Simulated assay, not measured.
Amino acid sequence: MTDEKTGCLICGGELVYSDTEKEMECSFCGKKFRTNVACENGHFICDECHGREAEAMITAFCLNTDLKDPIKIAITLMRHPSMHMHGPEHHYLVPAVLITAYYNEINEQEKKEKALKKALSRSEHIKGGFCGTHGTCGAAIGTGIFISVITGSTPLSGESWSLSNRMTATALMAIANAGGPRCCKRDTYLAIIGAVKFLEENFKVALPVTEEFCCEFSGLNRECRKKECPFWCGQSDNLK
């Protein structure tokens, strides 16, 4: 794995998306997959290879931190070299930081490890690029995973089933209203902030959350919408 933070992780080239899938070999593990995205120079990296190191880092940090602000947890994790500008690792990051902040806030830290394992297992089914091909963003689904984990929801549940789906819908509307193209950082912020409000309204748990801040990753995003993004304020790299 190279240190490219955006675009192709091998050469930094532009990623090319197609509306049809073709079989390609992962440039790292050599396994073959059906995919609709590859870089302009022909490189392809599967979701597992893309996010493997980041997932381990996210779990380790979440298990050991006592932070209760999910935005601060998320930004700290995003600064790690294994986290790229875009990628399916964000699909795990969202439920992981919410689970961490929630159990830290209610003083039930012993439940984090089991909950994080469930969140990781469920998030692995959300492929990269879902936001453009399946009409739903992995960050939004991540909030639904969070609610389903803390409530123990199953397909046969009643209220918890409803809450999990309402959470995903709430986050997805905020992301959709922000407009495209996708930005994994912006969509992660929107999903987390939406989940914090949903948690307070439906579970009476108020997490301390940073809502006004400057996104320090905009310079890495080739498609950054700049002034049209609620988190853009020049090239500042500090929280307000």
Rank of each mutant, 00 (worst) to 15 (best):
E53M: 04
E53C: 01
A54P: 00
A54K: 07
E55K: 10
M57Q: 13
M57Y: 11
I58L: 08
F61E: 12
F61V: 09
L63I: 11
T65Q: 04
T65L: 00
T65H: 08
L67Q: 09
I71F: 02
T76D: 06
T76G: 10
T76A: 08
M78G: 03
M78C: 06
R79N: 05
R79A: 02
H80V: 08
S82Q: 07
M83C: 11
H84Q: 08
H84M: 02
H86G: 05
H86A: 08
G87M: 05
H91P: 00
Y92H: 07
Y92C: 04
V94T: 13
A96Q: 02
V97M: 06
I99V: 12
T100A: 09
A101M: 03
Y102N: 06
Y102V: 05
Y102Q: 03
Y103L: 03
Y103G: 00
N104V: 01
N107Q: 12
E108T: 01
Q109T: 15
E110S: 13
K111A: 13
K111T: 02
K111G: 03
K111V: 01
K112H: 03
E113L: 10
K114C: 00
A115S: 15
L116S: 05
K118V: 03
A119P: 01
A119G: 14
L120C: 13
S121P: 00
R122S: 12
R122T: 14
E124P: 00
G128H: 05
G128M: 03
G129L: 06
G129C: 04
F130W: 07
F130K: 05
H134Y: 08
G135F: 07
T136E: 10
T136M: 13
C137S: 04
A139D: 15
G142V: 13
T143P: 01
T143R: 00
G144F: 06
I145N: 02
I145K: 03
I147A: 01
V149F: 04
T151N: 04
T151G: 02
G152E: 07
S153H: 01
S153I: 06
S153F: 01
T154K: 12
T154H: 12
P155T: 12
E159M: 14
S164P: 01
R166Q: 15
M167K: 00
M167C: 15
T168L: 14
A171W: 07
L172M: 15
M173I: 15
A174Q: 09
A174N: 12
I175A: 08
I175D: 11
A176D: 12
N177L: 14
A178F: 10
G180Y: 09
G180V: 15
P181Y: 13
P181W: 14
R182M: 11
R182F: 10
C183Q: 03
K185T: 15
K185C: 07
T188N: 09
A191M: 10
I192G: 02
